[in-house]
Write a protein that binds this DNA or RNA. Sequence first.
DNA 1: GGCACCTAGTTGCACCAACAACTACTATCG
DNA 2: CGATAGTAGTTGTTGGTGCAACTAGGTGCC
Lengths: 184, 184
Amino acid sequence: MTGEGGGEGGGSPGGSLGPRRYDPRVPGSKGARVTPDQMVVWRRFLEVHAVVVGALEAELDEARELPLAWYDVLVSLQEAPGHRLRMQDLARRVLFSRSGLTRLVDRMVDAGYVERERCEDDRRGTFAVLTPAGAACLRAASGIHLRGVRDHFVRHLAADDVAAMATALGRILAAETGPEPGDG
Amino acid sequence: MTGEGGGEGGGSPGGSLGPRRYDPRVPGSKGARVTPDQMVVWRRFLEVHAVVVGALEAELDEARELPLAWYDVLVSLQEAPGHRLRMQDLARRVLFSRSGLTRLVDRMVDAGYVERERCEDDRRGTFAVLTPAGAACLRAASGIHLRGVRDHFVRHLAADDVAAMATALGRILAAETGPEPGDG
DNA sequence: GGCACCTAGTTGCACCAACAACTACTATCG
DNA sequence: CGATAGTAGTTGTTGGTGCAACTAGGTGCC
């Protein structure tokens, strides 16, 4: 999935897209192209993401009727000072659009896990605040989630895998998200 | 983002969830909780996925008006013998549900990239077959996509990163897709 | 102080994906 | 051969997600 569709027709980041003659099965491509080894990593990366996230979602939903997106919101609020976050900041954290977060928070308010609170300093703003019920839900869910992360993901990683991946992924994040790291 | 309250970057664990010695609910593996280092890898994994896939989707859609899911289907068909695949096999490949794939193929048939073909051996079955237009679309798109994979992902990986990640991710896949992962 | 411009959040709308029910076909067993 | 169970694919329905438009409030500039 989302793997190679053939080869690469040359081209540098700023240059023109090149010709379309190539053979994906010839490993002779080199230079700035994506090598087969690199493509294997990319494909496995996608597949692992799909499989592991799918498993975590299923477990969390089965055990607690809790969608993974809800869990993300609960974690973000739990970690925030005062257990509250402006909608926009929360949206950035959980990688949602504003509108998507509005609806998501609507549902979580209905469920009693979150409350909205008017921001006094900036009357445009709204805080999403974790309720006791939300915190309790998170406590109960975190065990399930962490167990899943361990069983489906980190359990298979040796110590040097962890180190190597932390470094490599950190390098990608640093480059892709700009000078400031995405987490702080 | 689907992480947990554990600390990031080896600093203090930001939330009340992290500093737990071990969770008694964790079955049969005392002390084998998720360490902060492991949690960092998991969170970065998720973040990299979101950022890189988002960038690739945007580039492909901007340049070719081609959703990433369409590209995945084109790639799968291109790689298949006879440039055709049974719906079910295709669904497994692109990690879609049966119904989702039916609708997706509907759209791609409308676009002229794919054709349906009755399976003679098993009259229940249907093949999705790549059309010349689909192959042409894929050729044009693959350059953009591969460039994106290189620029946003593999470019940041050293040679031993590639080796380490291929091994580690392969181990996860083998474990998660081999036996039934029905933990819970 | 008033107007243009910006930001925060919500809502209308369209699209997309999954679940479950359904049709069509195949395989198994008596 | 006919009944039952199982498989392949499609369709009805439902829920979630993003873009663009909209409202409300803030900021800068004169």
